[in-house]
Nucleic acid binder design. Structure first.
Lengths: 144, 144
DNA sequence: TATAAACCCGACTAAAATAGTCAAGTATCT
DNA sequence: AGATACTTGACTATTTTAGTCGGGTTTATA
């Protein structure tokens, strides 16, 4: 059970963006350098973030990206969904009338995995980008 | 972020085993048939479960596996650990004095992933095999 | 108006992980 | 003796991941 780089990078990049989100857009090149993430990969990620209206792009020289909503309103779950980082605990489709593995009944542990999914998504639902930025600046202060 | 089959199968198989865990050992063949899991794969999984002393094996005809502890005492976290289904949210080693990605400081989101890991492991810590067996038999009754 | 910075986008690919399979055992019951 | 069932290591196809690459388009500015 592991978090993929895509999801991690998306969050890292957005925290970075949120911190420098003044009037000027932030270029992916800067984020790439600061966070040590491949520029090409970042572009793929931001394409998705833009399509889900989490960020806005500014083209041309001096261009870059800006947040499209307030940091408070951007939850982790939105970010993960945007980059297709879903929490998947079961193979079987929830919608299907049939049970798991094509059997007539739900597998013995179906409810468990549903619970787990909810448990994790609940965490993602509560955390906002603002929380992360705050947490980070507080830590910086307290660490000297 | 997804749960692998190995972890899922391990839990499914153990719930199955716990339900039929009377005096007689349960053969992997039976579990394989009931749960629709490849016998060869089950053998791999039970090898690990046995090494971690979650189950005990009985060789020969009429052999199989039995639980090595009370269902109440077997937590999900033990099962997952046994089959190497770890929760991994960060690439960076926790032990290293250095920060993430070889940088001098922790990445902006390091604490977040730690929190997430704890959140998930907390769930696994609380659930026991007994809980799952109970939950299942209750559901069967209420569903008719 | 040329140039460079930066976003836009699809296609490709190497490496790793996953989810098994296969083969050749050993132990035990009947 | 034969069947059942655990034991173990090696192998492999498939899928996913984590990118790379190449060619665009847009826009500020010198």
């Amino acid at each position: 059970m592991k978090l993929t780089s895509k999801g991690r990078y998306a969050v890292m990049a957005l925290v970075d963006l949120a911190r420098f989100n003044n009037i000027n857009p932030v270029s992916l090149r800067d984020i790439s350098l600061r966070q040590g993430i491949s520029l090409d990969y970042l572009e793929q990620i931001f394409l998705k973030l833009r399509k889900k209206e989490i960020v806005q792009s500014v083209r041309g020289t001096q261009g870059g990206y800006i947040l499209n909503k307030k940091a408070k309103e951007i939850k982790l779950i939105n970010i993960f969904e945007a980059v297709d980082e879903k929490v998947k605990t079961v193979q079987c489709k929830k919608e299907s009338k049939k049970g798991c593995n094509g059997k007539a009944v739900k597998c013995l542990t179906h409810n468990l995995w549903d619970e787990l999914e909810n448990h994790i998504n609940n965490f993602f639902d509560k955390k906002s980008l603002e929380d992360l930025v705050k947490d980070n600046s507080e830590r910086r202060v307290s660490n000297g």
